[in-house]
Amino acid sequence: MKNTLCILMVLVLLGTGALFAAGQQETGLTKVGIVNLPPEESGYRQANVEDMNSVFSKANGYDSKQTNTGDNSEQIAAAKGYIRDGVDYLLISAANATGWDDTLKSAKDAGIKVILFDRAIDTAPSNYQAALLSDMAFEGKKAVEWVLSLGLDKINLILIRGQMGSAAEIGRSAAVLDAAKAGKLNIVADGTGGDSWSLEEARKVVEAAIAAGKDFNVIYAQNDGMAQGAVQALEAAGISHGKNGKVKVIGFDFNRFALRNVQAGYWDADMQCNPRQAAEISRWIKSGNIPSGTIYQDELLLTTDTITDEDIQNWGINADPGKGVITR
């Protein structure tokens, strides 16, 4: 008796849920389900989550929900929930690249368009409509082009990698390793900041290079925190850097503190990794003309000479220390 009652109640609840869902469709808003990683994962993700929330808002004609979790199975469960809710578009930034096949197929069967952002998924391209990604190899190439364009007599570079094996590390290292193989530059030290892209580890890599008496004139750090650690090591050792300095420093990710350091000539350059895919995806949806396959975002490289306040305002992520403030 009790069991039947329970089942009845669940059915009633589900029924009302369906009614609500049907009711919302009539409002004319585009229904979007967003499966994303949690904002506390990184400054990049924080900007990414905010951007999704602000672009896919009621004011812009969207009825969107966002799930933020770093657990792949929770992400899949959330995606399935959105499919059941009958969203029009499903936007996914996956925690793991694998395990998504069934979910993506059922979305396709339900007529839902799946757009991947920031992170690719290992699956047949027919399982999703489009993927808007950052091309880490492009970022690396652009950064290395900048290094080669500095006009140094001989480039002796310290490479500070991020988490070994991560997409960002592989892409951003590849260009440097290729250039070294082609004899265009010389890698004098090759280190890593470890799994947490650690400032302290990066500092130790540079300190070890200094202690070994290595001569170097470029630091290529694969994120801003590690570039900061590297520069701390230079400061402590009394080695000049930045504008008019001996060592040229480049970081990645466009943290605002890093951009301010570039602006002040304390560092030399920073390479973007753009977390703001929402506007582009919204443009696709509004125009009804969604491309298929993988689309790479165009990303910027800013140097002390080219950087402006607007760039920092528009493209930077994380807290802004203010103009002229150097984060040592």
């Binding site: 904002p39 506390e40 807290a319 150097i326 984060t327 040592r328």
Partner: peptide
Amino acid sequence: GRSIAFMIDGKLSPILANDISNQIGT
């Protein structure tokens, strides 16, 4: 813990760019 700290930080990484902090760190 890190989520709590993230909330205290106002969902950003605040900058501590002042001379005294810098001297404590160097």
